[in-house]
Design a protein around this nucleic acid. Structure first.
Lengths: 253, 253
DNA sequence: ATCTATTTGTACGTATGTATT
DNA sequence: AAATACATACGTACAAATAGA
């Protein structure tokens, strides 16, 4: 259980924050895993010697960080929870909401990370995933005629990259690429960030992804890497004009 | 002000969460910036028609996300707040606490991102920053004799990279590299992750950073890039044995 | 330096909601 | 259907912090 009373070493922080912090370190010390039960509200009230409201505020803090989940009813209570990619993405998104992240910035990273991802996945994908990738590509098999269609295709092609990212065994690489892709997706949807229909560009992008898929299937890392690099290069140029400031809203999560 | 009453479209979420969400979208709609004042507790209680505790829990949620800061006293209240890199890092760190991020994973990204950073900074650094980098290098000018010293030097050399990251105009690149460096730093300090003293390795690392600094000063992007690439290559090999699981605690922030 | 006004912070008691058995 | 076990929400009273007179 958490310490019965803190000798008030840091009177600067509010009690709920201190309680939340204490619970966090306690969870680590106890080696609790996701799904493990935390003491009940009543127990915490007693252990910390604080009022219900204070404890509840602490739980909200942990909940906001995605570290606990609370259920009502018998057998209910608070449980250790694993944040989940969407929650983490939203929390990080809050940070970039105040920065002026540009498309160029994102592509500076995508340009080097996506090829790395592609290379690492060559020959590693299951039949199911390959089929899903195939299906995604198929969804933009013919050129868009309307802006609306163009936009949907753009989002779908980003989904292709998100799917790839999800396959990486490197959680950091996986998260980072997914984060960038989801931001670009958001922008496409909410800020009408998409190129005017252009058959040539469409064909180019589609062919890149097809050739990439082939390289991934045949298990040729260097080929996958270079195709992806070229793909990013051209996508970067395509996005060059779109210098609009970003993240005009907080991300969902 | 926030909507007077929600038609309860999502009874799934608790009231505090709904209130927090409402305030977030309201902040965006109003175009409020960091430092701007939020309605007082009393006002929110009235506008939302909810109890004090409920509103306070909502504020805690926003505070945990780093989006508001609250002060007591006259002129006090809640204010829009810009999360700050440490907060964002800690929140993202929570996510990776549950993933099994390895040193190898981190270096897979560092290997491609650090050279990119180096290239982008060539010729861009102010005299002050260059001096600071110089001073950092100087702090490990002579080989370590004890493990303790070795550890301190390792942390200092990571600080060199954090300093560089902070200079990037690309907030995403800046954050990502800083995030990785701080994790490695944490590990060095808390998990005794550092190589045994080895004069040869020490000299190699020091020379890399010296040559890098020269290239940055002379404004040669490609040279900076290749030096950094080689530096990462060798650092990656150095870290190869250190396959320990990571993040045995939540990051401070 | 002291007081005073303002605004958040904490406490506590009660009532309601919700899910399990 | 009813009882049980838990979180959720409300309202009020008082404490603490801070700015200004």
């Amino acid at each position: 259980m958490p310490p019965v009373s803190t000798p008030s070493p840091e009177p600067k922080l509010s009690r709920p924050v201190r309680v939340a912090e204490a619970i966090k370190t306690w969870v680590v010390e106890q080696g609790l895993k996701a799904g493990d039960r935390l003491p009940s509200e009543a127990e915490l009230i007693e252990r910390f010697g604080m009022a219900k409201g204070t404890i509840r505020e602490a739980m909200r803090i942990l909940e906001a960080q995605g570290l606990v989940k609370t259920r009502t009813g018998p057998g209910g209570g608070s449980f250790v929870h694993e944040p989940g990619q969407d929650r983490a993405r939203a929390l990080l998104g809050n940070y970039f909401y105040f920065k002026d992240l540009t498309i160029t910035d994102i592509y500076e990273l995508r340009r080097v990370l996506e090829p790395e991802l592609a290379a690492s996945l060559a020959g590693q994908l299951s039949a199911e995933v390959l089929a899903e990738l195939e299906a995604t590509i198929a969804s933009y098999d013919s050129p868009a005629t309307t802006l609306e269609e163009e936009r949907e295709q753009h989002v779908a092609s980003l989904r292709f990259h998100a799917l790839l990212a999800a396959q990486s065994k490197n959680p950091l690489l996986s998260f980072t690429i997914d984060f960038m892709v989801k931001i670009l997706s958001d922008l496409t949807v909410y800020k009408e960030l998409y190129a005017p229909p252009n058959v040539e560009l469409w064909r180019q992008g589609r062919d890149f992804q097809r050739r990439l898929l082939a390289a991934l299937r045949s298990g040729d890392p260097e080929k996958a890497r270079s195709i992806m690099a070229a793909h990013m290069e051209s996508a970067q140029k395509l996005m060059q004009g779109q210098e609009a400031q970003m993240l005009r809203r907080f991300m969902a999560g």
